[in-house]
Computed example of a mutant assay.
Amino acid sequence: MRHSLLSKFQGTILGAVLGDSIGLQYQRQLVGILPQTEDLEPILPLTKHQQLTVSGATLALNSVNSNVPSGKDSSASGRLAVACAQSLIRCSGLDLKDWRDTWEAFAKSETYHRGSAEFESILNPCEAAVAALPAAMFFHENKAKLHEKIMLAIEVWSNENNPEWETAILAVEYAIARALKEKLDPATAIEQTIAYVKTDNALTELLLQVQILLEKGADLETAATHLCKSATALRERQGEGKKKLQTESIVNPGNFIPIALAFYCFLNTPEDLRLSVVRAARTGITGQLTCALTGALSGAYNGAAAIPVEWRQVSSAAVKSLPKAEGREPSVWEIGSDATIVELANNLFAVWAGVYRPDASLDSAALARAVAAPYVIRPRKI
Rank of each mutant, 00 (worst) to 15 (best):
Ile89Lys: 01
Arg90Pro: 06
Arg90Ala: 12
Arg90Ile: 08
Arg90Asn: 14
Arg90Ser: 13
Cys91Phe: 10
Ser92Ala: 08
Gly93Asp: 01
Gly93Gln: 00
Leu94Met: 07
Asp95Ser: 04
Asp95Val: 00
Leu96Gly: 03
Leu96Ser: 09
Leu96Thr: 07
Lys97Pro: 05
Trp99Glu: 00
Trp99Phe: 00
Arg100Gly: 04
Arg100Thr: 07
Arg100His: 08
Arg100Asp: 07
Arg100Leu: 09
Asp101Tyr: 03
Asp101Leu: 07
Asp101Phe: 03
Thr102His: 00
Thr102Ala: 02
Glu104Ala: 03
Glu104Cys: 03
Ala105Glu: 08
Ala105Ser: 09
Ala105His: 11
Ala107Arg: 02
Ala107Lys: 00
Lys108Trp: 02
Ser109Gln: 01
Glu110Arg: 11
Glu110Cys: 08
Glu110Asp: 15
Tyr112Gly: 05
Tyr112Asp: 01
His113Glu: 04
His113Leu: 05
Gly115His: 01
Ser116Val: 06
Ser116Asn: 07
Ala117Ile: 00
Phe119Cys: 04
Glu120Arg: 14
Ser121Asn: 08
Ser121Gly: 09
Ser121Asp: 07
Ser121Arg: 10
Ile122His: 10
Leu123Ile: 04
Leu123Met: 12
Leu123Cys: 05
Asn124Thr: 11
Asn124Trp: 07
Pro125Gly: 00
Cys126Leu: 11
Cys126Phe: 09
Glu127Phe: 13
Glu127Ala: 15
Ala128Val: 02
Ala128Pro: 03
Ala129Tyr: 03
Ala129Leu: 07
Val130Asn: 04
Ala131Gly: 05
Ala131Val: 01
Ala131Ile: 00
Ala132Val: 02
Ala132Ser: 08
Ala132Asp: 08
Ala132Thr: 06
Pro134Thr: 08
Pro134His: 01
Ala136Ser: 15
Met137Cys: 03
Met137Lys: 01
Met137Trp: 02
Phe138Leu: 04
Phe138Val: 05
Phe139Pro: 00
His140Tyr: 15
His140Val: 12
His140Gln: 13
His140Met: 10
Glu141Lys: 12
Glu141Gln: 13
Glu141Trp: 06
Lys143Phe: 14
Lys143Glu: 14
Lys143Leu: 14
Ala144Asn: 12
Ala144Ser: 12
Leu146Phe: 09
Leu146Pro: 10
Leu146Gly: 11
His147Val: 13
Glu148Ser: 10
Glu148Trp: 05
Ile150Gln: 03
Met151Pro: 03
Ala153Glu: 09
Ala153Lys: 09
Ala153Arg: 04
Ile154Pro: 03
Glu155His: 10
Glu155Pro: 03
Glu155Asp: 14
Glu155Cys: 05
Val156Asn: 05
Ser158Phe: 15
Asn159Thr: 15
Asn162Glu: 10
Asn162Thr: 09
Pro163Gly: 14
Pro163His: 14
Glu164Gly: 11
Glu164Lys: 10
Glu164Asp: 12
Glu164Ile: 06
Trp165Thr: 02
Trp165Tyr: 07
Trp165Val: 03
Trp165Phe: 07
Glu166Asp: 10
Thr167Arg: 14
Ala168Trp: 10
Leu170Ala: 09
Leu170Gln: 15
Leu170Met: 15
Val172Glu: 14
Val172Arg: 11
Glu173Tyr: 00
Glu173Ile: 03
Glu173Val: 01
Glu173Thr: 05
Tyr174Gln: 11
Tyr174Leu: 10
Tyr174Val: 12
Ala175Gly: 12
Ala175Lys: 09
Ala175Leu: 15
Ala175His: 13
Ile176Phe: 06
Ile176Gln: 01
Ile176Asp: 03
Ala177Tyr: 09
Ala177Arg: 11
Arg178Cys: 12
Ala179Lys: 11
Ala179Asn: 14
Ala179Val: 13
